[in-house]
Simulated assay, not measured.
Amino acid sequence: MNTIENLRLRIKEITENYKDEEIGGWITGDGPIPCDILFVGEAPGKTEVEQGRPFVGMAGETFENYLNSIGQSRDKIRITNTCSFRPIKTKEGKTGRVTISNRTPKVSEIKLFKEILDDEIELVNPKLIITLGNIPLKRLTNFKSIGECHGQLYFNQELQRHVFPMYHPSALTYNRNDEFKSMYNKDWLKLKETLKTL
């Protein structure tokens, strides 16, 4: 039986039995079901795991501002991740201080959650899936890089769904130039127009 509670239990079981790499907690998707718009991110970070919701850190704030700018609100959309647990790496400094940081999920880790993401998509039944960043892009399309397809609408034959690839909101933190910001703003405006056609 495919329910949100069933997905939650499956995520919990996968996380508790995973021993290959360091991980730090897990979360489920957030938002109404069914829902017309589904955003798919990469994996949760520290703040997400602490609060039990996706996109609540700094990138989440950026995301919400853009969402509001196109007339959408967080309570009307659903957000989930390609990898439901937080992939981490620990590093010990010269003073012995240990720091924990996020790392990109491995292909094998993404595969662990393949059926869960597919089942969640089926449950949510969105008119549009928006991928945020390269990880969900590679998982839900045949593209290798966000640079070649962002801001365009594609159709996933296997899922029978429309997919709209976008840069991850955190990309704004790393690309502080005006050119990138202008392009990112345009992608949100394209998304706004795309939503009117679905």
Rank of each mutant, 00 (worst) to 15 (best):
F113P: 02
L191I: 01
D118P: 00
L112P: 02
P34K: 02
E179H: 04
T80S: 07
K89D: 04
L198G: 02
L67S: 03
I135V: 15
I79H: 05
S108A: 10
M1S: 11
G45R: 11
S170Q: 12
N2P: 05
N17L: 06
L198D: 08
S101N: 11
Q72C: 10
G133V: 13
N177V: 05
I100K: 15
S145T: 14
I37E: 00
S101W: 06
N177H: 15
N6W: 09
N2T: 14
I14Q: 02
L9C: 13
L153Y: 08
I146W: 12
L159M: 06
G147S: 03
I79W: 01
Y167I: 10
T80R: 09
K186T: 13
T3Q: 09
I121C: 07
I33T: 14
G147Q: 14
E42S: 15
P169K: 10
V98S: 07
R53T: 12
F55N: 07
H162V: 00
N125G: 07
N134P: 05
S145E: 09
G93Y: 13
G60E: 05
H150S: 11
R97P: 02
L123C: 03
D30N: 07
E22P: 04
I27L: 02
R53D: 00
N81Q: 09
E5R: 14
E22F: 14
E50W: 04
T3S: 14
Q152E: 13
F55Q: 01
R10M: 06
G93M: 13
V98T: 15
K186V: 10
I135Y: 06
K192E: 02
L132R: 15
R8E: 13
Y184F: 15
P169N: 02
P32R: 03
S182E: 15
L140E: 12
A43C: 11
I14M: 07
E148A: 14
G133F: 14
K186L: 15
L9K: 13
G45T: 12
E13D: 14
N6K: 13
I146A: 00
S73V: 08
F113T: 06
P136C: 03
R139C: 09
E21W: 10
Y18I: 05
G24P: 01
E16Q: 14
I37F: 12
E5S: 13
K12M: 13
A171Y: 14
G71P: 02
E122V: 07
L191E: 01
L9E: 15
N81R: 03
R8K: 15
E16R: 13
P87K: 01
L128Q: 00
G45H: 14
K19W: 09
P34G: 01
P32G: 01
T104M: 11
K91C: 03
I27T: 10
S69K: 06
K76Y: 00
W188D: 01
R86L: 04
L9S: 12
R86Q: 09
V107A: 13
E115V: 00
Q152G: 08
A59D: 02
L159N: 11
G52H: 08
I130P: 00
P54C: 07
P165Y: 01
N65F: 06
L132P: 04
P34E: 05
N65G: 12
V40K: 11
N17F: 08
R8A: 08
Q160V: 06
C35M: 03
K114D: 14
